[in-house]
C-alpha cells in the first residue's frame, strides 16, 4: 500500500488543467488524455495542493472546515491523494510517498 508521510508536499502535475463547475473540480490530464470529476472531499484536497502545504497542513486545514474527527479527515485526505496519484495527477518525486506492503499508514 502507499505510505504517505506527514511532511510530504504534494504538488499538481504541470500538465493537468482544472475547471470548477458548480463547486466541483474537474481535471484533464494532457499526458494521459484522462478526464476526472472530483467529489467534494477530493475537490477540497485539490484546492489545498499548492506545492507548499504539507500533508499535515492540508489535514489541519480540512479539520477546521469539516465537522469530523481528525482520523476520518486524515483517511479521506490519504484516499484522495492516493487516487490523484494513481491517475497521474500529482507530480512525482516531490513528496515523501513510498510503497509499503505492511498494513497501517
Amino acid at each position: 500500500m502507499l505510505l504517505v508521510m506527514a511532511d510530504s508536499v504534494p504538488m499538481a502535475d504541470p500538465s493537468v488543467r482544472e475547471m470548477e463547475i458548480d463547486g466541483d473540480i474537474t481535471l484533464f490530464h494532457a499526458a494521459t488524455q484522462t478526464a476526472l470529476v472530483l467529489n467534494g472531499t477530493a475537490s477540497d484536497v485539490w484546492r489545498l495542493i499548492d506545492g507548499e502545504r504539507t500533508l499535515e497542513e492540508i489535514v489541519a486545514a480540512l479539520d477546521q472546515a469539516y465537522d469530523a474527527d481528525p482520523e476520518t479527515v486524515r483517511a479521506g485526505v490519504d484516499s484522495a491523494l492516493t487516487q490523484l496519484r494513481e491517475h497521474g495527477l500529482l507530480a512525482s518525486g516531490n513528496s515523501s510517498i513510498s510503497t509499503n506492503t505492511s498494513s497501517g499508514r
Partner: peptide, 11 residues
C-alpha cells in the same frame, strides 16, 4: 443533480 454528476455521466 449537480453539474459534476452530469459531467461524469456525459464523459
Amino acid at each position: 443533480v449537480a453539474a459534476g454528476e452530469v459531467l461524469a455521466a456525459v464523459l
